[in-house]
């Protein structure tokens, strides 16, 4: 069953500060994502990978096309099965979807100082109404699965290394168990050992009612976790292939 159907998605930026130039981010991109699937998005730098994720999350306003989402039919206005067009729904609907079912994490941890790592990870759960201690327990579990040293759990992520921060970031994205998880290079700063822990964790999540669309650079990670690969080039969809067919290709 299709959980996400991207149809002719385009994004153009009007750069007023650069003399009203137009920059094309995405150009007529279409693909489907199946329920429980792990879809990897690859492409060279500037090919539109992050723009695609941000359009799906509505951090960017799509300029054209449709993004039909079936993961929250109970929130849809129309008949069940029609899905919700993420490209067209209003801000309030987007907020409701984000709160309930769609998670997003960027490659950078955007957290305020002086909040301990365990609370950063527990936050989404607490905002869903999970009691503080349960949320912190779940957070500790995730951090331990990602091999973050226990000594750091109560420390401030602002003082962490890139890899440590990324683990906190990934744990935070996974903790609320979203239906659709959008990951923007969540493992780029991890060493091989930790990356393996992250892969194991992601594998466990996918298929457990979570669908993932993620931007990855590392071929090993893609091969380990992805079901299919979306290849972008200069804002256009080049192809969508099963991961088996992707093997051996050079990724920029």
């Amino acid at each position: 069953m299709t959980v996400l159907s991207v149809e002719g998605l385009s994004k153009t930026f009007d750069m007023h500060v650069l003399g009203d130039t137009q920059v094309v981010g995405l150009d007529d991109v279409s693909f489907d994502v199946r329920e429980g699937e792990f879809l990897a998005v690859v492409g060279e730098s500037g090919s539109g990978k992050s723009s695609l994720l941000k359009c799906l999350y509505r951090t960017y306003d799509p300029t054209g096309g449709r993004i039909v989402y079936h993961g929250a039919d109970e929130l849809a206005d129309g008949d069940a099965g029609d899905g919700i067009d993420l490209a067209a729904c209003d801000d309030r609907e987007v907020i409701a979807l984000r709160d309930a079912t769609i998670g997003y994490t960027s490659q950078f941890l955007d957290e305020i100082p002086r909040v301990p790592a365990v609370d950063v990870v527990a936050r989404p759960l607490r905002e869903q109404g999970v009691p503080a201690e349960d949320a912190r327990g779940e957070a500790r579990e995730l951090l331990s699965r990602l091999d973050l040293p226990e000594a750091l759990w109560e420390a401030y992520p602002a003082t962490f290394s890139g890899g440590e921060r990324q683990r906190v970031n990934l744990a935070q994205a996974l903790s609320p168990r979203p239906t659709l998880l959008l990951l923007d290079e969540p493992t780029s700063a991890l060493d091989p050992e930790t990356r393996q822990a992250a892969i194991d964790l992601l594998r466990e999540y996918v298929g457990e009612d979570t669908t993932v669309v993620g931007v990855f650079h590392n071929t090993a990670v893609i091969e380990a976790v992805a079901d299919r690969v979306v290849v972008l080039d200069d804002g256009k969809l080049q192809r969508v292939v099963p991961v088996a067919d992707f093997e051996g290709e050079v990724v920029g």
Binding site: F13, R58, T59, Y60, D61
Partner: peptide
């Protein structure tokens, strides 16, 4: 949306 206003 706040992130939209900030990033796009």
């Amino acid at each position: 949306l706040t992130d939209r206003v900030m990033e796009d």
